[in-house]
Amino acid sequence: MSAPLLVEFYLKLPQPQIGDDPDLLQAGMRESMNAFRDAVGAKYTEGTLQRLLTSSETSIRRAAALATGLIGTMRSNPHLSGVLRDTDTLVRKFAVESLWEIWFRGGTPDQNGQLQQAIRLPDIAQTLAALDDLVRTAPDFAEAYNQRATLYFRRGEYARSVADCETTLRLNPYHYGAASGMGQSYLRMNRPRAALRAFRQALEINPSIENLRDTIRGLETALDDAAREGGE
């Protein structure tokens, strides 16, 4: 299957313009993305898309990064993570979005549905109970732990959030979101060195998280200042 056909599918997607009606644009994008997914799925395998992620042609990498999120599985996790260092901003953006797509599809279809239902519940206690049930029945579903970690963070249960972030990273070592979330929890626990390690890990996985660079520099400066004051 020729790569230019993938680019042809990709170029049929609408390109947003200033002044477009947001509601109409969203509806049009949804229909176009469904058509793009169906066209790609009929002509390309996941393995082929993985290979195209490293193409020398930027347009091919963009199309492959976007398409992989629509039809890919957790088998594409390392491949998409590899292009988080791509020189093209849009390739990196599509890779980030596609990673989250496949992470949320990391279980069985039934488990994926349970996760979506859980995070849409209006009550935090109900969501937590649903996630507790899910991790018991799906102990290898990394995103279930990550979503529970986020919930624990919102409840101020930072140690529990860290524990779930650690489990997420054990199951999915490419989950920069869990690493960053763990850093935030450590900050709330007044453990700056542990926070710094977690933030560095997140940035190592995904170098495009620019806001973390300032956070890391701030922590490094604070720790250096504390060390100098302690030595005086």
Score class of each variant (00 low, 15 high):
residue 52 L to Y: 14
residue 21 D to Q: 07
residue 110 D to R: 08
residue 135 V to W: 10
residue 76 S to V: 02
residue 40 V to Q: 05
residue 1 M to H: 07
residue 60 I to D: 00
residue 108 T to Q: 07
residue 71 I to D: 06
residue 42 A to S: 02
residue 65 A to K: 03
residue 170 R to A: 09
residue 101 E to H: 13
residue 180 S to Q: 15
residue 204 E to I: 04
residue 24 L to S: 13
residue 173 P to D: 14
residue 84 L to M: 14
residue 88 D to S: 12
residue 99 L to P: 10
residue 91 V to N: 05
residue 119 I to Y: 08
residue 209 I to H: 14
residue 145 Y to G: 00
residue 39 A to D: 04
residue 99 L to W: 12
residue 165 C to E: 05
residue 112 N to G: 00
residue 16 P to D: 06
residue 12 K to S: 07
residue 87 T to F: 15
residue 66 L to M: 13
residue 104 F to G: 00
residue 196 L to K: 00
residue 144 A to N: 06
residue 65 A to Q: 02
residue 143 E to R: 01
residue 92 R to M: 15
residue 153 F to Q: 09
residue 174 Y to Q: 13
residue 17 Q to W: 14
residue 20 D to N: 06
residue 41 G to D: 04
residue 179 A to N: 04
residue 18 I to H: 11
residue 134 L to Y: 03
residue 161 S to Y: 07
residue 51 R to P: 04
residue 12 K to F: 13
residue 37 R to S: 03
residue 51 R to F: 15
residue 75 R to V: 11
residue 52 L to M: 14
residue 97 E to P: 03
residue 3 A to T: 03
residue 20 D to R: 05
residue 178 A to P: 07
residue 180 S to I: 11
residue 10 Y to V: 04
residue 103 W to E: 02
residue 227 A to H: 06
residue 32 S to T: 03
residue 76 S to T: 03
residue 185 S to W: 14
residue 54 T to S: 09
residue 100 W to R: 10
residue 137 T to E: 07
residue 116 Q to S: 01
residue 164 D to F: 11
residue 127 T to I: 12
residue 46 E to T: 08
residue 71 I to M: 15
residue 60 I to Y: 06
residue 26 Q to A: 12
residue 211 N to S: 14
residue 115 L to R: 01
residue 7 V to H: 13
residue 196 L to G: 00
residue 124 I to H: 11
residue 151 L to F: 08
residue 55 S to N: 08
residue 60 I to Q: 02
residue 32 S to W: 12
residue 66 L to N: 06
residue 179 A to P: 10
residue 38 D to M: 05
residue 201 Q to E: 11
residue 165 C to T: 03
residue 146 N to T: 05
residue 30 R to I: 13
residue 139 P to R: 01
residue 204 E to D: 12
residue 220 E to N: 01
residue 210 E to C: 09
residue 152 Y to A: 01
residue 82 G to I: 06
residue 110 D to Q: 10
residue 162 V to M: 06
residue 141 F to W: 04
residue 115 L to M: 05
residue 152 Y to C: 02
residue 168 T to K: 00
residue 131 L to F: 15
residue 39 A to G: 00
residue 57 E to I: 14
residue 207 P to K: 08
residue 122 P to M: 09
residue 181 G to T: 05
residue 192 P to E: 11
residue 141 F to C: 00
residue 172 N to M: 05
residue 156 G to V: 03
residue 58 T to L: 10
residue 107 G to C: 06
residue 22 P to W: 11
residue 93 K to E: 15
residue 20 D to I: 09
residue 222 A to C: 02
residue 25 L to R: 13
residue 201 Q to K: 12
residue 169 L to M: 15
